[in-house]
């Protein structure tokens, strides 16, 4: 497997490193089908392009399906000239990615730690970034999130989560959608994806200011790519 050169690709318009630091948690929240997984895959790819190692944990998709997400998003990035690489070069990025899948019901921190040690202790894969897709972010997982946070700090990991929100439930007083507000304090950064007409708006809810220093971005529903407005 050939090594690739570090490539600067920052889907959020801000260097991913500057958004989230070791031990920090970020959440991408949206209703079902709005594009949380593809958003996380773009975050992961931006890290992989900078030669950071990404451990992608999925609680609802198979390894094959997660791999397909990466392939599709990477192909779209190449075809839309967002990154200047041939489509086939995804192969050279793959050593920077490790996919772990669990059943949502069977997911527990001890189980995850055991699997994590299997790969890290033998030096098979030592991740810098953790992507967790499919863990319900509600009152039932608050304790688990705090445990994962401690684990992430201990292992110098920054972590990205996806969170499913419901439109039929009332948000809390500061407008944080349900049921995410139960666990919102665990996160340093919160990004909400909101479909509005023909595009999906990317709103920085917490941790990043929606101001003129940061570019306005949205997700193109046809390619699911994050674009600047």
């Amino acid at each position: 497997m050939t090594e690739h050169k570090s490539i600067d690709y920052n889907p959020l318009g801000i260097e991913t490193d500057n958004i989230i630091k070791k031990g920090d948690f970020a959440a991408v929240i949206a209703r079902a089908g709005v594009g949380k997984t593809s958003f996380l895959v773009q975050v992961a790819l931006s890290c992989m392009l900078k030669q950071k190692k990404v451990l992608h944990v999925s609680l609802h998709d198979s390894v094959k399906k997660v791999s397909l997400w990466y392939k599709e998003i990477f192909t779209n990035l190449v075809n839309q000239h967002v990154i200047d690489l041939p489509v086939g070069s995804l192969d050279s990025l793959l050593p920077c990615r490790f996919i772990m899948t669990f059943k949502v019901d069977g997911f527990s921190l001890p189980g995850f730690v055991e699997r994590f040690s299997d790969i890290t202790e033998q030096g098979i894969f030592v991740p810098d970034v953790l992507i967790v897709d499919g863990l319900p972010l509600n009152e039932t997982t608050d304790k688990l999130l705090k445990e994962i946070k401690a684990f992430a700090v201990q292992n110098s990991l920054s972590a990205w989560f996806s969170g499913h929100i419901h439109r039929d439930e009332e948000p809390n007083a500061d407008g944080t959608p349900a049921p995410f507000f139960h666990v919102a304090d665990n996160f340093d950064i919160v990004i909400q994806l909101q479909p509005t007409g023909e595009r999906i708006c990317v709103n920085f809810v917490k941790g990043i200011a929606n101001d003129s220093d940061n570019p306005m971005i949205h997700v193109d529903p046809s390619s699911m790519l994050i674009m600047e407005l």
Partner: peptide, 10 residues
Amino acid sequence: GMIVGSQEDG
């Protein structure tokens, strides 16, 4: 071998 991923099922 380049491990693509591992899938836990029970």
